[in-house]
Design a protein around this nucleic acid. Structure first.
Lengths: 334, 334
DNA sequence: TTATACCCTGAAAACGGTTTCAAAAAAACG
DNA sequence: CGTTTTTTTGAAACCGTTTTCAGGGTATAA
């Protein structure tokens, strides 16, 4: 599966040129006479040359490695992003090193440190809670792409969808279906996504001349458990409502379960709409109406952008958007 | 966040010794006089020395990197394993490089090649379909741990749970609850796990003097969709059954959905038991009774074993076992 | 006291590339 | 055809470690 090491020197000898020339054709750094170039290429092919990554790195070249900072791997959304990154990187020359920031800025800073210590050529930061300031500073040191976060100063290096807009659409969908008393189970407050989704919800209500009822808004933490607790306290408070918009799908599952326990039917009695469209959402009962975030595509877009940055200095991030996927958890009211 | 590079030479000068001595204290390779040792340590601390990983690698040392071959990232089970690996590696000196084998042996071979090209110090292969033979051969080249697969010749380097036994227990649970006509939705045939689970199911039936009815066994592919299709064909075939054992949780979700669509109640009319206990399973309706695979722990065990192998040449894999988690999707019969 | 080990230590040689520098070759010019 | 300019090329230095090798000390033995 692997051979003894063929070095640049071996190539040089086989092709009857100097090491320097070989290096030049490999990197296309300096023009080389066509004849020699061919000879080198042939030799490389014949001996099955693979450059030693350490030597390259040492000599001030690239590490051919990119660092990925994820949070809380194990959450479906972030997993899909990771998968997108890995797949897009497979046919590049870069390999991904993963570290976990655990949604804690200190941890995040530390793991970024180890990445930097490994001389990664670039960074992809997925979510996280590191301050914008630090991220900006970091971006001056290394090429960086930020996924699932929207930074003022670095907006052209961010891959994200418009959470405000998406939440607005979701809420709007409920309103259009005749719902007026719409509860919202939020995500963790300090997550940017959560607050944006909350704002979208508020705005949709306002635009429809529905007054926001604070009692119908419950703070959760993106977990299934917080979904069941959210519904339980909603029910306890006694305000009537006919629909729930949750900040992610897992909370929607929890909400659905809590309702099930009380014998409340979905969607006949209460409608639910989630956010993310994780794979399971099509298979729960009833299949969940939700907002699809193109997680895989976001990962791919990020990876491609970074590779572009690294290779050419040019890159482009194709705009991605969330869209509503309508299944069976929302009923028309009246 | 990062400084100019402090080299071993700087340390040497500060501590008034030679580079060689510094290297020796770093690696503990040769005894060094206590006084000098202290001086070096102090200097390293003062200058905040971080060894250059490329130089180390080049000089024939370690790359301090371990390669992880996963399959089909995005499946909850494999994601959790990956998470376990990452977390266990965080407080080691190694960083993980991930590649995806896509459950195709050619792809797997290729990506292992790139890992080898990067001189990883060790390998963790999670699942996959590479032949046992190749894996064994690989294990002679590099330290390797295999997760979620059971290899004859390498059994002491494998982290896995007893799928046969676990499936036996699950089926047994159904039998004990009074079920006799028990259907099984299998996973992909060529996956070792799938066939072991199938065999466990068969054995439990046999031991209970229940004849295996081939019409109640349907081949699926681990996806939710195959779960719904499985139940649909089961229903079409017309043989009555009162319980279903699916090869994983996602198929259980699918099965449950198909039943829901037909107006068949779970668990009153038909019971379901899954396999994996992915996080969502506690929140579907009804909460799913299933076999819990300690995925996270498996990842951690693998990482720790590999680190042990690398560091000391010694390692130990603590035995992990699956266990039944009883929730609400199985009813007592009669 | 001198010879014999043994333990520490520094100098120097790898490791396999990239890059600088100056020389050689080729091309352009007068 | 000689001179100048430009393009190609090889030699050598360098990147930051580890490791080999041999020399210097010190302690032990004779």
């Amino acid at each position: 599966m692997e051979f003894k090491n063929v070095t640049i020197q071996d190539i040089a000898e086989t092709a009857n040129v100097s090491k320097s020339t070989v290096s030049r054709v490999i990197n296309n750094s300096t023009p080389v006479a066509e004849k020699k170039r061919k000879a080198v290429l042939a030799a490389m092919d014949k001996l099955n040359f693979q450059p030693n990554i350490f030597a390259r790195g040492l000599a001030g070249g690239q590490s051919m490695t990119i660092g990925i900072v994820t949070q809380n791997i194990g959450s479906p959304f972030y997993d899909s992003v990771a998968q997108g990154i890995i797949s897009a990187l497979r046919d590049s020359v870069y390999a991904p090193v993963f570290v976990d920031g655990e949604w804690k800025s200190e941890v995040e800073e530390e793991v970024i440190g180890t990445l930097l210590g490994r001389h990664v050529d670039g960074l992809i930061v997925v979510g996280g809670s590191l301050s914008e300031e630090k991220l900006v500073q970091l971006s001056k040191q290394k090429p960086i792409i930020v996924v699932a976060r929207q930074l003022e100063e670095l907006s052209d290096q961010c891959v994200f969808i418009d959470n405000f807009e998406a939440a607005y659409q979701a809420t709007r969908f409920l309103i259009d279906a005749g719902h007026e008393n719409i509860a919202h189970l939020t995500g963790i407050r300090r997550h940017q996504d959560a607050t944006r989704r909350f704002k979208g919800y508020c705005q949709a209500l306002t635009d429809a001349n529905i007054e926001l009822n604070p009692d119908l808004v419950i703070e959760g933490n993106f977990s299934g458990q917080s979904g069941v607790m959210g519904v339980e306290s909603l029910l306890m408070r006694g305000h009537s409502f006919t629909a729930i918009f949750t900040a992610n799908d897992e909370m929607a599952y929890g909400a659905r379960l809590a309702l099930y326990r009380k014998g409340i039917r979905v969607p006949e009695d209460i409608s639910i709409i989630g956010f993310d469209d994780q794979p399971n959402s099509a298979f729960i009962t009833p299949p969940l109406t939700t907002v699809r975030q193109p997680a895989l595509e976001m990962g791919q877009a990020a990876a491609k952008a970074l590779v572009g940055m690294l290779a050419e200095g040019e890159y482009e991030i194709s705009p991605l958007k969330a869209d509503l996927v309508i299944r069976e958890s929302v009923s028309r009211r009246r």
